[in-house]
Every structure is written in structure tokens, then in C-alpha cells.
């Protein structure tokens, strides 16, 4: 049992903790920062180059359940996102290759604040389990209110030809009812 095991997504086995400040940890942090800045700058094609071609990208629903049933608070049947590499690339194509992706045109102004990063090895050589917190602020049009999307990312990053790629992302959101009108943005 490692320190972060209780945070892991159901299908990712976690091994040794990767020490904060180690080279590997810093590489992961560099990846997450670069990814956040590409998404916030709406450089979606560059962002998509960070994705492994066997990517699985999911965002479960949440339900309000009693303390004793917290496992049931995460719903992985119907989800908010249930995508693979191909469908994510389809979404990127809609956003970048059409003139009518109105949900993000004009685009939201976003900040992805990624913190509380914990890294561990997995049973698979070259793959890392990365748990981080995400606070995404979203501003649209002339509304002074920010939509807040908060959650925990449970990622698997993989070294491919010396570069880290995102192979698995599950985002455990905190809201049972989302306070933003759509997820036309990536988390």
C-alpha cells in the first residue's frame, strides 16, 4: 500500500512513490504545466501531440451519497466524457477545423491550475501514475462570474521516444450538478 494508492483510478496499479523534486517528478510537472498552458492558449493541435494514440479519456458522473457509500459517488456507466484518441481528435477537429463550433467561438478564457501533484511508478515499465488537483476557471462573454470546475486528475503518463505522453486521464469532478453549461473544453 502506497501513500497515493487510495487516490488511484480503479484500473491503474500504483507502485513506488516518485519523490517530489526528483528528475522524473520534475519532468511530470513540466509536462502538466506545458499541457495546461497549451490548453489555456487554445493551442489544441499542439496539445493533441501530447496524447498517446491509445488514450482513454473519461470524466465520471458524481452522485451525492452517504459517508458509508462514497465508492458509489463515482459513476462510471454514463459519464461526462467517455473518449478515446480517435474521438478526442474528432473534438479537436471540430474546434479547430470548422467555422461553426459556437460553444467555443468566441472561446472561453480559461486557467488550468494544476497542483498537489503525486507521482508513482506503475506495474508497466516507462509508465507513471500521476494524481493531481485541477481548478479550472472559465470566463465567457461579458459575464463577470467565473465558472469553476474542480476535480482530481488521475493520469497515466508514458515515455514514448523519450517524451512523456498522456495515455490515460480520468477526472473525478467535485460537482454532482456541473455549474458550467457544457464541457466544450478539455479538462
Amino acid at each position: 500500500m502506497t501513500a497515493t494508492q487510495h487516490l488511484s483510478s480503479a484500473d491503474v496499479q500504483q507502485g513506488e512513490v516518485v519523490a517530489i523534486g526528483s528528475d522524473t517528478y520534475n519532468q511530470v510537472l513540466g509536462f502538466l504545466y506545458r499541457e495546461a498552458s497549451l490548453l489555456d492558449a487554445i493551442s489544441l493541435k499542439e496539445w493533441s501531440a501530447l496524447l498517446a494514440t491509445d488514450l482513454v479519456y473519461t470524466v465520471p458522473l458524481r452522485q451525492t451519497r452517504p459517508m458509508a457509500q462514497q465508492a458509489a459517488s463515482i459513476i462510471r456507466t454514463v459519464q461526462h466524457y467517455h473518449d478515446d484518441y480517435r474521438s478526442i481528435m474528432g473534438r479537436v477537429m471540430r474546434l479547430t477545423g470548422t467555422k461553426s463550433a459556437w460553444a467555443e467561438d468566441p472561446p472561453s478564457r480559461t486557467r488550468r491550475l494544476v497542483t498537489n501533484v503525486q507521482v508513482s511508478t506503475t506495474g508497466v515499465e516507462g509508465e507513471l501514475a500521476v494524481v493531481s488537483y485541477l481548478l479550472l476557471t472559465r470566463s465567457r462573454f461579458d459575464s463577470p462570474d467565473l465558472d469553476l470546475i474542480s476535480g482530481e486528475r488521475r493520469d497515466v503518463l508514458r515515455y514514448v521516444a523519450g517524451e512523456l505522453k498522456l495515455a490515460r486521464r480520468e477526472v473525478i469532478l467535485d460537482q454532482a450538478v456541473l455549474g458550467t453549461p457544457n464541457l466544450a473544453i478539455f479538462l
Partner: peptide
């Protein structure tokens, strides 16, 4: 059906995300 419904309709659906951005205006 489940996956394509999620990808086209509802929260992140590529069709209906345009609707939910219109009604507030």
C-alpha cells in the same frame, strides 16, 4: 450507443454544447 451519445449529446456532446451556450443569451 453510450459512447457516441456522450460524444454528441449532453454535457460534452459536440452537438448540444452549442445549444447550451445559446439559451443564456
Amino acid at each position: 450507443m453510450l459512447r457516441q451519445s456522450i460524444q454528441l449529446f449532453g454535457t460534452s456532446g459536440m452537438v448540444e454544447q452549442d445549444d447550451s451556450d445559446t439559451w443564456p443569451h
